[in-house]
Design a protein around this nucleic acid. Structure first.
Length: 281
DNA sequence: AGCTACTCCTGGTAGC
DNA sequence: TGCTACCAGGAGTAGC
């Protein structure tokens, strides 16, 4: 599933193909991809606007638009489970999963594909309205050791759902939470207020290290899903320590990786490496 | 405040 | 082979 590293990879690859382009006609094949916006309004907002900048915030891709040099809203993309973004020649047939496409002034087309239809490709007058609900960037300057310690201490939430909560920290999903918790040797069911300062620092390092390494490897690909916009798979899936390794030996200690369900999410852990929960008595 | 359940969707696969 | 049933899962929302 596209999480921060995958979204960052997509962003880096499509940025040079979009910045400076003027948008043309759009085609909407699945209206709900627009997230409630009408086809007419979407098309009108996008047409003849120029792409000023392409950036990532959490798992969102934000393509900021301008008209006559002034900010004119943004295309906001969330890939959710199976979304993909490609810039293709206009003649390229992307098949039945193409949901939205927008013509570019260089004869190409920005295509949004999404097998499971959970993703969003929409226009937003003020993207900050959506983005300000997000927590800090795990690779940004706000995510300090002190911030994490304070935030963990001031809540009494189970670690896994807390780390998945985008309003707490932006960009982590099921895969990288499991990987980071294993790297920090923390149990997914541990309560946030019961995490020591030392463990909090370890968690911060684990989150940042995991994400940075995954970005370096252009994310993770499996299940025929995520691909870079160049069509290449990422390679971080070969580094997984726990995710999807149910029943196979932990690469640290050899114990079989177990799978439990936490907050309706499949959760993978090593019960020897991550034994802080339940508390030993 | 924090939790659970439900919804949206499809392709893949287990079981028969 | 061909059918049905079920599963994964990010995020929003309702309800307790």
């Amino acid at each position: 599933m596209p999480e921060l590293p995958e979204v960052e990879t997509v962003c880096r690859l499509i940025r040079p193909k979009l910045v400076g382009r003027t948008l043309g006609v759009s085609r909407v094949h699945w209206q709900r991809s627009l997230g409630g916006l009408s086809v007419r309004r979407f098309s009108k907002h996008v047409r003849d606007a120029r792409v000023r900048r392409v950036r990532r915030r959490g798992k969102y891709i934000v393509a900021e638009l301008e008209r006559e040099g002034s900010f004119a809203g943004a295309i906001l993309v969330h890939l959710r489970m199976s979304g993909r973004l490609h810039v293709d020649p206009a003649a390229c047939d992307r098949g039945p999963h193409l949901r939205v496409s927008v013509d570019l002034d260089d004869g190409k087309r920005l295509n949004f594909l999404d097998v499971r239809k959970f993703g969003r490709f929409t226009f937003c007058d003020d993207p900050l309205e959506v983005l300000r609900a997000l927590g800090p960037e795990p690779l940004g300057s706000e995510f300090t050791p002190l911030w994490l310690r304070d935030q963990l201490r001031s809540r009494k939430r189970i670690l896994k759902p807390l780390l998945l909560d985008q309003s707490f920290l932006a960009g982590l999903g099921n895969i990288y939470v499991d990987e980071a918790l294993h790297a920090a040797r923390l149990h997914p069911l541990q309560r946030s207020n019961e995490v020591s300062a030392r463990k909090s620092n370890a968690l911060r390092e684990a989150i940042r290290g995991t994400l940075l390494e995954a970005i370096e490897r252009e994310g993770s690909s499996f299940d025929t899903f995520y691909r870079t916009p160049e069509g290449q798979p990422g390679s971080y899936q070969h580094q997984f320590q726990v995710y999807g390794r149910n029943g196979r030996p932990c690469r640290t200690c050899g114990r079989k990786i177990s799978r439990i369900v936490v907050g309706q999410r499949g959760t993978h852990l090593c019960s020897r490496c991550q034994r802080s929960y339940p508390p030993r008595s």
